[in-house]
Structures are given as structure tokens and as C-alpha cells.
């Protein structure tokens, strides 16, 4: 009876007027949130909605936008650059995501060993990740220079007479960018490392008692319990791969043939800021949003089949 009375009182409080103190606190809370809310409205929601509206217009930045309906979306079906840039981005994804994930996972397993100096090693491994993408791109463009670059000099030194022309080759340009990406796997490695350290050691102890081999422990304990981390990494890697820009922007002028480095975002940039076709560029951006959203939703829908959580997230026992 008493409990019921408290509930009624609480409900009345929720529906009715707040106490002066609570009302003041609420106002203060909104006031403190205001900069963020204004920021979201003016710098995020506003541009998002504007870009959606612009995608149905022809706009060169200086003349008033002209309504063209779905023409921008229809144009993509006949646009060579659209297909090329989508192809380049997909090629990069297919090459980079498995490679980066495997490399980061392998590295994290090594860095999870209990050895002297491991903290220093972890720091060293992470250091390249903090370098700016542009600086890394310029550095690698010199390393991968086909004639004078140190990579090809090394390859020639070990007997490969005609090493790839890397960024200047139609076939090797994207693989070269993928290799560059390995430089920055420190971030992913740290996340995998955190995932590894969350696996209860008791499971390994039990496996040891049962006589499990190292490989069995890895495939039966480590990998299944890392699937939430792998899932997280997969989604973030996908999002990052769709958005690759800085490296492509810096390196696209360095001789890549036949649009071999025309990544999707670079195409959007070119259409807007070089060609002044902001309506079409907005449509391209929305198609990218759609494709990435669908891809991520599809992966997400499969997650309950291969992602294992130590704690049942559905609340089922």
C-alpha cells in the first residue's frame, strides 16, 4: 500500500510541475546542452538536410539551385567515374579489410604475451597510427617511387628485375595504398589487444587441464570470444574504407593511370570543388550513404550467427 502511494506520488511529480529546484536544474541542463544542440543543428543536421535537398538540384555554388528532380541519380547510371570510383573503393575494401584485420589480430596476439619490454613494444606499434595521413602518404609515395624508391631498390636487390610500378601502375596502385594502410594498424591492434585481455584466463586454464593445444585454444576460445571485437572492427573498417580520402587526394596526382586511385570520396570532391557540380556531388554522397548503410545493416543482421557474447545480450538464459 505504501509502495503504491510512492509510485502515485512519483507519477504525479513526473506529469505535474517540477519543484523550483528541479525546474532550475532542468533549465541549467538545457543551457549547458545548448552549444552542442546548436552545433548539431547548424553544423550537422542542417548540412545533411541541405545536401539531401541539393541532390535534386543543379547547383554551381554561385547561381541559385535549379530543381532537376531525379536527374542527378539517373546520371550515375551513365557516369564512367561513378562506376570506376565505386570499383576502386570496393577493391580497396576487399583487399584491406581482411588484411588489416588479420594483421592487427596477429599482432595483438603477439603483443599479448607476457614478456619484458612489452609495454614499450606496444607503444612503438601504436606510434605510426598517430601520424597524419597526409604525411604518411607523402612518405610512402617516396618509398614506393618505381625507379628511385627504397622498396623497389630492395626488390631489385633480391633479384626481382621488374618490380611493380606501385602508384604509377593501374594494377598495383590500390594494393600500394593497402600496403600503406598496414602502417596504421596500431589502432586496430590496441582494440584487439583489449578484447584479448577481456577473455577470462580461467577458460585457458580449463583448456590446459583438458590438454588443448595452442591452436585449439586460439580457435575454440580466443577467436569466438573475440568475435564482438572483430564485429566492431569490421563495421568501423568498412565505414573507414568507404570514406578513404586523404591518402587518395594526396596521391592521385602522382601518376596513377586510368583513374586507378579515383576513390569514391575523391570523385565526390572532384565533382563538387573542382567541377562545381554540387547537386550531382550531393547525390553521389547520398548514394554512398545508402550503400554503406545497407552493407552495415546486412553485416549486422548476420551478426547473431557468428558473434558470441560472453554475457547474453538478449537477456535469455
Amino acid at each position: 500500500m505504501e509502495a503504491s502511494g510512492l509510485e502515485t506520488k512519483s507519477a504525479t511529480k513526473k506529469k505535474g510541475k517540477l519543484s523550483p529546484l528541479a525546474a532550475r536544474e532542468e533549465r541549467a541542463a538545457y543551457l549547458f546542452l545548448l552549444p552542442w544542440i546548436l552545433g548539431v543543428i547548424f553544423f550537422l543536421l542542417g548540412p545533411i538536410l541541405a545536401s539531401f535537398a541539393l541532390s535534386f538540384t543543379k547547383w554551381n555554388l554561385f547561381s541559385p539551385p535549379e530543381w532537376v528532380g531525379l536527374a542527378n541519380y539517373q546520371k550515375m547510371f551513365h557516369d564512367r567515374d561513378f562506376y570506376n570510383s565505386m570499383g576502386v573503393t570496393l577493391k580497396y575494401m576487399l583487399l584491406s579489410i581482411p588484411l588489416f584485420s588479420a594483421a592487427a589480430l596477429g599482432l595483438s596476439v603477439l603483443l599479448n604475451q607476457k614478456l619484458r619490454g612489452m609495454y614499450v613494444l606496444r607503444t612503438v606499434m601504436f606510434m605510426p597510427s598517430v601520424l597524419a595521413g597526409t604525411a604518411v602518404a607523402v612518405m610512402f609515395s617516396m618509398l614506393l617511387q618505381p625507379d628511385a624508391g627504397i622498396v623497389n631498390q630492395f626488390l631489385r636487390g633480391i633479384g626481382i628485375a621488374n618490380p611493380p610500378r606501385w602508384l604509377m601502375s593501374e594494377q598495383w596502385a590500390v594494393p600500394a595504398i593497402v600496403l600503406m594502410g598496414l602502417w596504421g594498424i596500431g589502432g586496430g591492434t590496441i582494440i584487439y589487444l583489449a578484447g584479448l585481455q577481456n577473455i577470462p584466463p580461467t577458460l585457458y586454464e580449463a583448456a590446459d587441464i583438458d590438454g588443448a593445444s595452442a591452436w585449439q585454444k586460439f580457435t575454440r576460445i580466443t577467436l569466438p570470444l573475440l568475435t564482438p571485437t572483430i564485429f566492431f572492427q569490421l563495421i568501423t573498417s568498412l565505414a573507414a574504407a568507404f570514406q578513404i580520402f586523404d591518402i587518395a587526394f594526396v596521391l592521385s596526382g602522382r601518376g596513377a593511370r586510368r583513374g586507378a586511385l579515383m576513390f569514391y570520396l575523391l570523385n565526390i570532391y572532384n565533382e563538387s570543388f573542382r567541377e562545381s557540380r554540387f547537386g550531382y556531388a550531393s547525390a553521389l554522397a547520398w548514394v554512398l550513404v545508402l550503400i554503406s548503410a545497407i552493407t552495415i545493416l546486412v553485416i549486422n543482421s548476420t551478426s547473431n550467427r557468428w558473434v558470441y557474447y560472453e554475457v547474453d545480450t538478449k537477456g535469455e538464459s
Binding site: 543543379k58 554551381n60 547561381s63 567541377e275 562545381s276 557540380r277
Partner: peptide, 14 residues
Amino acid sequence: QETLDQAWDTWDSF
């Protein structure tokens, strides 16, 4: 020619 046509289209719109 396709790129040129597009460039002129934008130019004319200015």
C-alpha cells in the same frame, strides 16, 4: 568530349 560537354554545361550555368 563528354567531360568537355559537362564542363561547358557548368560554365554556361555560371
